[in-house]
């Protein structure tokens, strides 16, 4: 039997090939066939998840809630020392220096990354900005968000911190972070679904010993990770509760 694996579409494009390398490594490590399918957007992936097409998902915190509480997925691991943080950035010459400098009518450029958008909208709350008095323009990638800012088509851009820091120097030199989240307890998590749950312990052991073998280390590097850390069911439940508190 071949199992199906997918990755949250907010993965860093620089690490696209890394996920295929990881999938090859994982198949060898557990002796099972796994097909990796990547999506360009969240909606297409969510439809496939709703259709129960996947057995292994590297999920963003937002989707982890649905997968654990409604689809019977269980947590395996999270990347070590890698929490999800968000940045609201402006053009380098923007007169705004703190969030309170932003005004209603603000033009926002963002991707459809749900947890980044939620964190960034929370960071706008102190200056009474919300979906009601801002204009949101959705773009396909963070590079396009950056271009919208540089070209003056948007006042602020929402970024995943990791992606912002990996924008080219030329792009970043034309931007400036206005505010950055320091939440520290929200992160992506690798979840295993009901059809593959019998391999949970085997996969967990293989993932946690990756750093001890040369090949495993190379695979982790291709993903931009230093290693994995075990995630308990309670850790995930806590994160889901926390995400729930942020939704309104």
């Amino acid at each position: 039997m071949t199992y199906n694996f997918t990755v949250s579409p907010d993965f860093n494009p620089n690490h696209l090939s890394g996920w295929f390398i990881f999938n090859t490594w994982l198949q060898k490590a557990i002796g099972e066939g796994i097909h990796l399918e990547l999506f360009d957007d969240f909606d297409s992936q969510r439809r496939a998840i709703a259709d129960n097409q996947f057995d292994l998902i590297y999920a963003n915190p937002y989707d982890a809630s649905l997968l654990v509480r409604e689809k019977g997925f269980l947590p395996l691991v999270s990347p070590q020392n890698k929490s999800d943080e968000a940045i609201i950035a402006v053009r380098a010459d923007c007169p705004a220096h703190v969030v309170e400098d932003l005004k209603p009518g603000l033009r926002i450029s963002s991707t459809d990354d749900p947890d980044v958008n939620m964190m960034c909208m929370i960071m706008l709350e102190p200056c009474d900005l919300s979906a009601e008095n801002t204009v949101l323009h959705r773009s396909d990638t963070y590079v396009i968000v950056a271009k919208n800012l540089i070209q003056g088509d948007a006042d602020v851009g929402f970024f995943l911190e990791e992606t912002y820091s990996e924008l080219s120097n030329m792009i970043r030199s034309q931007l400036r972070p206005l505010v950055q989240s320091q939440i520290q307890v929200i992160n992506h998590v690798l979840l295993v679904g009901p059809r593959l749950i019998h391999m949970r312990e085997t996969m967990g052991n293989a993932l946690m010993t990756m750093t001890q073998e040369e090949k495993g280390q190379g695979v982790l590097e291709s993903l931009g990770f230093s290693g994995w850390e075990t995630v308990s069911e309670e850790d995930t439940e806590f994160m889901i509760d926390l995400m729930d508190t942020l939704e309104d």
């Binding site: 703190v98 960071m123 505010v179 950055q180 989240s181 320091q182 939440i183 307890v185 806590f238």
Partner: peptide, 10 residues
């Protein structure tokens, strides 16, 4: 309260 922070307790 500083920008971008969350206070969390259980």
């Amino acid at each position: 309260m500083p920008d971008g922070r969350l206070i969390v307790s259980r």
